[in-house]
Write a protein that binds this DNA or RNA. Sequence first.
DNA 1: TACAAAATTAAACAAGTGTTTAATTTAAAC
DNA 2: GTTTAAATTAAACACTTGTTTAATTTTGTA
Lengths: 209, 209
Amino acid sequence: MPNIELNEKKIQILEVAEKLFSEKGFEGTSIRNIAKEAKINIAMVSYYFGSKERLLESLIIYRTSDLKLKLENLLEEDLEPIDKVNKLIELYITKINCNGGIFRIMHFELTSKKREKTLNHFTELKKGNLKSLESIIKEGQNKGVFRKDVIIPLITPTILGTFFHFHMNKIFFENVLNLNTETLYNDYIKTNLTKHIQQTIKALLVYEN
Amino acid sequence: MPNIELNEKKIQILEVAEKLFSEKGFEGTSIRNIAKEAKINIAMVSYYFGSKERLLESLIIYRTSDLKLKLENLLEEDLEPIDKVNKLIELYITKINCNGGIFRIMHFELTSKKREKTLNHFTELKKGNLKSLESIIKEGQNKGVFRKDVIIPLITPTILGTFFHFHMNKIFFENVLNLNTETLYNDYIKTNLTKHIQQTIKALLVYEN
DNA sequence: TACAAAATTAAACAAGTGTTTAATTTAAAC
DNA sequence: GTTTAAATTAAACACTTGTTTAATTTTGTA
């Protein structure tokens, strides 16, 4: 196995792997599939990454490394709490939407009992994200603009879950909402779905029963 | 291949398959895994269901057949729209939660490009569910208790997505929320998570901006 | 008891899996 | 130009995959 850093070739392999994993799942994608699509020899995956499992690990780190940073920057900005929440939602969606399909893989494959060890990096990421969200919400609660009886850890499932569920039922929603082209579908996410989630979270945070 | 109806043995196989599929994914589970766990010969799966793919199909039909009925019954009940929505949420969660892990499989595996053909039954189910939800919401809108600018098809992603996302990150939330036993975890879903979703949807539906 | 259908089995099938090997080519350094 | 390390390759490795076969056992019926 060569140097641990990512070179051009490794990135090329990662991106092909991401595409195939997101289309056919981790188990459903063979190294030969990846090699063929990336036009490399099947031995190169083991040569560069060590194993298929470690390829997945590299992919996750490759894709998630800058999200943490962006979230932390958001905390420092001079914005009202509700605007921070809206920006956080937007950040999540654009980030996830721009990155091939890795988040779909994470959402899925990383929860299976088989892959508990690969989970570590992902768990740390999630804990960090939750902390960022927590500080925003608490700021809003202290300012008296957010209600205090919301369960903060359950807000992320609502944000991400809504998005993922929409994404996972792509074919269904393309059909129901008449999103015939890829552009229409992506625009719908960028505008309507994002707005729906923001509207939902805002209502949850400020609505007095 | 014998009779198409389900006998005791077929159900036993279905339930083992459900367990393993939900733990390790469809591709990650072999017929030999299923056969061993169900204590049957590996040929029996092909004998009873024809193929692994058709086994999955049978499993989905087996698990979803009564959900449609229960939803339609809910429509007929004499309840306020918001109570119907709350009951619908509760129905979804208990139904999904009681059924091993098939919904997790559906959520995932049925969205991959590989399995488009198996999708049909599932798509019909989703369309029916959406219609039921739509009629409840519109009733509320006509009565003037629900706002009229919500995008109805996006409500299901928020309900189910929140639940699934929580479920998929089980290990993470067990950790964060100190749900050390299986009972604690299930109770949390039954009470707090359900309430969170109901609270969220209610806020979305009645909150005036 | 005898017969036929259904259920069950072990074995084999061909194809695909991730990984390793050892040989060869390419690139870089001296 | 020679030497050394890295990159790339085809072939083989042992193993698992879903499915089928053909033989055997079990079950139900007349």
